[in-house]
Simulated assay, not measured.
Amino acid sequence: MSMNSESNFLRSPQNNEYTKEIMKPINLNKFKLTKLTTREEVIKMYWDEDMSQQQIAKHFKVKPSTVGRYMNAVGIPIKTPRQAANLKITVEKLDQLYKKEKLSPSKIAEIYNVHPATVQHYIRTSGIHRRTLSQAISLASRKNVNEDFFSIWSNEMAYVLGVLITDGTIEKNGEIRISMTDCDVVKAIAKAMDSENCLTECMRPKATKMQLMFSVGRRKFFEDLTSIGIIQGGRKTSEQTFLIVPDKYKSHF
């Protein structure tokens, strides 16, 4: 171990437990890392070269949790969140990445080579307003869609709305689903909403033919559909009693 590594290692707040930890009887053969590296090499990588557990795991092609368990077993102290982050990011930059650029904690952690939990910790302690669960789920979704599709009336919007009410489902969380055997219609709807990666094939109970389902959810859908009188929550067509459709778009509805 280098002098710098030794110095960093000794500064660990957990080092007073070091001797006690390594004196415990441990069967190291159960750890995959035992066959791939040595305790000294992991200490060097973690403390001297300032590699994260994720980076070490990637280097040895194992899971980060495997590295964590191995380090605990052989008495290698874990860095505090501040040590792990080695904060090279300002609150202003964190706010920009998280709120303005809408990056997830995992993505920010990947950029700065730290654990996602470290980023979440600094978001909390920096007073940055955290996303709601629905906002996080929406951003985490890999499905692309024009969130403003139902904001402005158009021929396409009127057509999709008509199909949605007659043959689809509108949930309270803003999720819309349309499932039909006429695949061309479903594909056309997905294309109109700039969301061609929201299509999946499905087979309904007792059905004899495969259906194509379009499914995507956004909070903005809930707000826009409510504003034009749509009753959400899986309601049937007959229950949509107060739907406002401009005259110029009724022929497409």
Rank of each mutant, 00 (worst) to 15 (best):
S2W: 12
F9A: 01
R11C: 06
R11A: 05
S12C: 07
P13Y: 11
E17N: 13
E17S: 11
Y18N: 00
T19G: 02
T19Y: 10
E21I: 10
E21W: 09
I22G: 02
M23A: 07
P25V: 08
K32C: 08
L33V: 06
T34L: 11
L36S: 07
L36Y: 13
E40D: 14
E40V: 06
D48K: 04
D48E: 14
E49S: 01
D50W: 08
D50P: 00
Q54Y: 08
K58T: 00
K61T: 02
K61A: 04
V62L: 03
T66F: 07
G68A: 11
G68S: 13
G68H: 07
Y70P: 02
M71N: 06
N72G: 12
A73K: 06
G75M: 05
T90K: 12
E92M: 08
E92N: 11
D95N: 15
Q96E: 15
Q96C: 08
K102R: 15
S104E: 10
S104K: 13
S106D: 12
I108F: 10
A109R: 07
E110N: 04
I111N: 07
N113M: 04
H115G: 01
Q120A: 14
I123P: 09
R124P: 02
S126W: 15
H129A: 15
R130K: 14
S134K: 12
Q135L: 09
A136T: 13
A136R: 13
I137R: 13
S138E: 15
K143R: 13
N146M: 06
F149C: 06
I152W: 09
I152Y: 14
E156V: 01
A158R: 09
V160L: 07
L161T: 05
E175Y: 11
R177Q: 14
I178E: 05
V185P: 01
V186H: 07
K187P: 01
K191R: 10
A192N: 06
M193D: 03
L199K: 05
E201R: 11
C202K: 07
R204K: 08
R204H: 01
A207L: 00
K209C: 00
K209W: 00
L212E: 02
M213R: 15
M213G: 03
F214W: 05
F214P: 00
F214T: 01
F214H: 04
G217M: 08
R218Q: 08
F222W: 10
I230K: 05
I231M: 12
Q232G: 04
G233L: 08
R235S: 06
R235M: 09
K236H: 04
T237D: 06
T237M: 12
T241F: 03
L243E: 03
L243C: 03
I244M: 10
V245I: 15
V245H: 06
P246Y: 09
F253H: 01
